[in-house]
Amino acid sequence: MADYKIVFTGPVGAGKTTAIASLSDIPPIGTDEAATDMTRERKPRTTVAMDYGLMKIADHERLHLYGTPGQERFDFMWDILTEGGIGLVLMLDNSRKHPQQDVDFFVTAFRDYIAKTQMVVGVTRMDTHPAPGVSFYHRCLAAHGLNPAVFEVDARRREDVGTLVKALLHSLDPGLRP
């Protein structure tokens, strides 16, 4: 059995759990628990360990979808999660107060992984919070020397999350033919 994985990360409530559920062939395995700190304001239940979903690619190939915990105090899991991954999906919530800080935090935290692979960015809640726009995130990412795909997404829509992952695959290999 050959196993591959994509890691979803981002702040609390950005839609990582939902995005994984949108793509997964199995009911996603979450480890949400009642939030016990400031995260409660944003999400009554938050992912304290990680989320897990699975896509069967072929008879002997599986794509694992891992979501990192949104709470920064669990960042020790991230090194383990990213090992052997093929790319990173950064989910951002456009309704948060300091989106640039979110970008800076996660891009810095996953700097080594991004350097080895590729990343794409999905921005949620743009329907209810249109500002800042996608160009804002491009500027934030450019400050880190990055120019990934940044898409408005609704994490509940499989087409949106699928398009985001497709962009990740083509970023990894533009020569990739459908």
């Binding site: 795909a149 940044v150 970023s171």
Partner: peptide
């Protein structure tokens, strides 16, 4: 310069490959 927002803008055949390149 940047990726078009293909989740909201029309994605034509091979658009992602061309953009990535």
């Amino acid at each position: 310069r940047h990726w078009p927002v293909f989740t909201r803008w029309t994605e034509t055949p091979n658009a992602m490959r061309i953009t990535a390149l």
